[in-house]
């Protein structure tokens, strides 16, 4: 299994990372090295094995559905690259 440039471009877009055309050959080679190496897991028979999602089997806790924080817009917005009042500002998304 080997990724072609088109696939790398598609994955990069899914991950929202701009990849320039001249970066593709090196990046594709590196990704293929990694994928070629992890490919060895395909040799294992895992048909009957349940997947492990986390190392400690614990039931997630429930808590009361009540508001226990908030009211800190200044803290929330303190690191905003751009803000207007109590809002984050992004480029126009609706025409």
């Amino acid at each position: 299994m080997s990724l072609d440039f088109e696939t790398v471009r598609r994955i990069a877009h899914l991950a929202r990372i701009r990849v320039e055309d001249d970066e593709l050959p090196k990046l594709a080679a590196e990704l293929n090295t990694i994928l070629g190496w992890v490919e060895q897991l395909a040799a294992l028979d895992v048909a009957e094995i349940p997947p492990l999602t986390g190392p400690v089997s614990m039931a997630l806790r429930m808590r009361e559905d009540v508001i226990d924080d908030g009211g800190i817009p200044e803290k929330v917005l303190a690191n905003a690259p751009e803000r207007l009042g109590d809002y984050f500002v992004v480029p126009k998304v609706v025409e």
């Binding site: 992890v38 897991l41 395909a42 294992l44 895992v46 094995i49 349940p50 997947p51 492990l52 999602t53 190392p55």
Partner: peptide, 15 residues
Amino acid sequence: DAYYLRAQKVRSLIL
């Protein structure tokens, strides 16, 4: 399935 789910299953075997 081929990668992520399979890796999670192998993780079970390692545990």
